[in-house]
Design a protein around this nucleic acid. Structure first.
Lengths: 151, 151
DNA sequence: ATCTTCCCGATGGACTAACTCGGGAAGGCA
DNA sequence: TGCCTTCCCGAGTTAGTCCATCGGGAAGAT
């Protein structure tokens, strides 16, 4: 599995929206500026997440984006799968299973890869956006107490 | 983390060598043929593993490759790190740590990624080549009993 | 001397990542 | 009705990586 810039930006943007959940929409430009994300790139990412039902939008003069669901109902696995593909370290879970019984000579190895993907999936499937935001807040407090002016 | 063809071929070749451990060297061409790996590609991979001390070689008319250490002293993590880079899903463990205290705003997210890399590392650091070969054998028996003529 | 093998750098095509451009469509407001 | 601001969307660019191949050179056995 690999989390690309696209995936990272996607999650960061969702965190931003999660923090303001319930306060209406927020514009691409604002997210891009505050999160240091290239805005045209972010545009495409949000569009893709909208098509997937993670996020909703409103156009016009007071338009912008908001979460389509509450933060505790969005899990990291969903957005990473969407933006960066399957969680398995090689191919997808289905392809690994296919390989295992198509070439039993190396099935043991593929089985280990499957174990790795299951371990990753176990974490990412139960980690909600809400939890990530809470974790972020905890770190911000801890670090903000002694240094660093926000980056 | 991503296991590429290079990593897959590397492990498959090592398994091949592990099965014949103690019986002298085996040639690139033979490994390539029996494991369906492009031989020129395999050549480079073996060379890299030799430089890393995983494998040793002998040239000349009866040359070839062999494991540099017994199969129970080679772990998957070592070869995957060598051939495919760090196990973390984004950057390396060190870069993730760096990010966490350099931008505490998203440290929670990076921490989750670190958890994922730790889960992967836990599996791959304790899985030896010997264990993979044993697992392979178990599958071969199970499947060979009812079908498939080796691929 | 002459095979056979490993050693090693260079190259090439396909594909992806990470952006960027430019224009179009929807929606609020005067 | 315009007008402006926002989202919508396809196409293009640049750099880099993946997978593989070529061609020759060096070491070693007989």
């Amino acid at each position: 599995m690999k989390v690309s810039k696209k995936g990272e930006y996607g999650i960061r943007a969702l965190c931003h929206l999660a923090e303001r959940h319930g306060e209406g929409v927020v514009q691409i430009r604002e997210i891009a500026r505050l999160e240091s994300i290239p805005s045209k790139f972010l545009e495409g990412i949000l569009l893709q997440m909208k098509a997937a039902g993670i996020v909703r939008s409103r156009r016009g003069i007071d338009g912008g984006y908001a979460l389509a669901r509450p933060p505790e109902e969005i899990v990291l696995a969903e957005v990473i799968r969407l933006l960066d593909g399957p969680l398995a370290p090689m191919g997808s879970a289905a392809e690994l299973r296919e390989l295992m019984h198509r070439s039993p000579r190396h099935a043991g190895f593929y089985e280990v890869l499957m174990d790795v993907r299951n371990a990753a999936a176990a974490i990412l499937d139960r980690t909600t956006l809400k939890e990530v935001v809470e974790r972020n807040a905890r770190f911000r407090k801890r670090a903000g107490a002694r240094s660093s002016p926000e980056v």
